[in-house]
Nucleic acid binder design. Structure first.
Ligand code: FES
Ligand code: FES
Lengths: 143, 143
DNA sequence: AGAATAAAAGTACTTAATTACTTTTAATAG
DNA sequence: CTATTAAAAGTAATTAAGTACTTTTATTCT
């Protein structure tokens, strides 16, 4: 469904948001270590997200990545759109050029139902909402 | 979700099954042309499926690929298992090594619901059932 | 101002998926 | 039995995703 890069992106952002509101910035090393991903990969991803204003970055010593209260209210589909492209959830399950009920593939009806459940999740759950269970220890970003 | 190879595999098999029961074998060229895919790719895929006895092949002139009435009753998950691997539908949406409700990622609950709708489709729909709408012109394999 | 820090940006390498090509083998027809 | 046909099998080339390395730039602290 999502590319590995995109999964890492979401985990990195959730980690960033699940840090104390005391707003300390996080360095790439810290983030990569925590979500158990390659430092270089995380670096590239966060740069892209910062360019899109989904998160923020500051250079120099005491610099790092951080996310504002306002930005935490974004649904995670914004991350997916940036990393994996806009119409990931509009694709046909059998690879037809366009998923449409007027020219459907044989699995269209059922596939679309499942796809839309997942799509809705990404559209409605905000970064905020998803980092709550992580903060309270009910959900995990690694393992 | 599925790899492109796997999508092509499913379309090739449905095409094979949606041919007249008059049981003429189909050549790779014919199949590839019809589902609009690379001849070489289709060739490799069908060889794999034939080795797994999901379809059959016969060499030589008048040879080709075909599928028996019995084989048509297989659910399409058998194709997915062969091409994309057994546990495609058990994977965590955020890439945790194992999807489990006792160690869930933050999107687990919703993601699992959608994934299971799609999984069920692949588990229950047989080749037979899916080629019906194609035969009657209600669904398409190309376009 | 100068040294140190950390992200930004650009480049290069590695791996896996996909597609293309070549040779071999089995079956049929003449 | 020989030539022909089509899949099988093996190999090679291409492409894209992911990962690693290097240089540059902005910021802070001394
Ligand atoms: S047309 Fe294939 S999923 Fe909609
Ligand atoms: S643990 Fe992530 S989807 Fe189940």
């Amino acid at each position: 469904m999502l590319s590995n890069t995109c999964k890492t992106a979401i985990k990195a952002v959730i980690y960033l948001a699940s840090k104390d509101e005391s707003d300390e910035k996080s360095g790439v090393k810290e983030i990569a270590r925590y979500i158990n991903a390659s430092e270089h990969t995380v670096s590239k991803i966060l740069q892209t997200l910062a360019r899109q204003k989904i998160i923020n970055s500051i250079k120099g010593p005491t610099g790092g990545f951080y996310i504002t209260t306002k930005q935490r209210k974004q649904p995670i589909i914004t991350i997916v759109d940036t990393i994996d492209g806009k119409d990931l959830f509009d694709e046909c399950g059998l690879g037809l050029s366009k998923c449409s009920s007027s020219h459907p593939c044989p699995i269209h009806d059922e596939y679309k139902k499942g796809r839309e459940v997942i799509q809705k999740l990404f559209r409605t759950k905000t970064i905020n909402v998803l980092c709550e269970p992580v903060e309270s220890g009910l959900a995990y970003l690694i393992g």
